[in-house]
Design a protein around this nucleic acid. Structure first.
Lengths: 135, 135
DNA sequence: CAGCATCCAACGGGATACTG
DNA sequence: CAGTATCCCGTTGGATGCTG
């Protein structure tokens, strides 16, 4: 009866998917050191579209990881904050962040090596049609 | 000069994306306790297609997280294993797994609560076409 | 067995325009 | 300001068939 993410229909896999979500990690990290307004999140997370930001926030809110607080003011102000559940995730995601930054160089080096070896897998080793000209 | 995943073009974000990849986590976890053959991976990770398995393995291999060893035998045998870099990720991904399993119930409860409140946002509160009948 | 190649449907996600 | 609603195209990813 233990949750097993290796089973396709187990909820724990959905949880992993949510955390593994491209933007969820960055949103949670941004909320790590305090509440943030919608616009602040959008500004801080470079490259996120508002559609994705909203969608990500709704997902996190639905899963009980963040709260959404609407202040009745003009102009409107909406604050997002981590819940206790969300904070319990902080060690994990910040660990993810630090792993990514500390091992970035190694990963990039590995990529260069891998890509350099790739031509050997080509038919003749010459005239490699990386992109078969489309169509 | 520190890598900053909040910048759209920083490599550290790509690293986070790779880890956050839907299948990468499960593949790494499967390789946690030893080498595995291609078929074993496919069997253990329920629901993964061979296209996705291959694609995920190539990505992990490219990033230097797993090795691919071809044994010249008939029938062919290919073993996948974590590299040192890959193993350095184990604490993180297993932490992710345990978080997912231990907090699964809370997340699911939060979802039920959230979804129960959703009708209030509907126009009338009745006749909610959750799935617009397809088409 | 361990894949690669191809086709195609479904979804993700960006850009844009509009609203309370 | 903080969204929602639409359009629309690129990518994802499953299914199928073939190969060393």
């Amino acid at each position: 009866m233990r949750p097993d993410p290796f089973q396709r229909n187990c909820g724990s896999r959905q949880v992993i998917d949510r955390i593994g979500d491209r933007w969820s990690v960055l949103v949670v990290l941004t909320l790590a050191d305090g509440d943030r307004r919608y616009g602040e999140l959008a500004e801080h997370i470079d490259g996120i579209s508002q559609k994705m930001l909203t969608q990500t926030l709704r997902g996190l809110e639905r899963d009980g990881l963040v709260t959404r607080t609407v202040h009745a003011s003009v102009p409107p102000r909406v604050d997002y904050a981590l819940t206790g559940l969300g904070r319990s995730l902080l060690d994990l995601v910040s660990g993810l962040e630090s792993w990514a930054t500390t091992h970035l160089a190694e990963v990039q080096a590995a990529r260069v090596r891998y890509d350099a070896d790739l031509p050997r897998r080509s038919p003749t080793g010459t005239a490699r049609p990386t992109r078969p000209s489309r169509r």
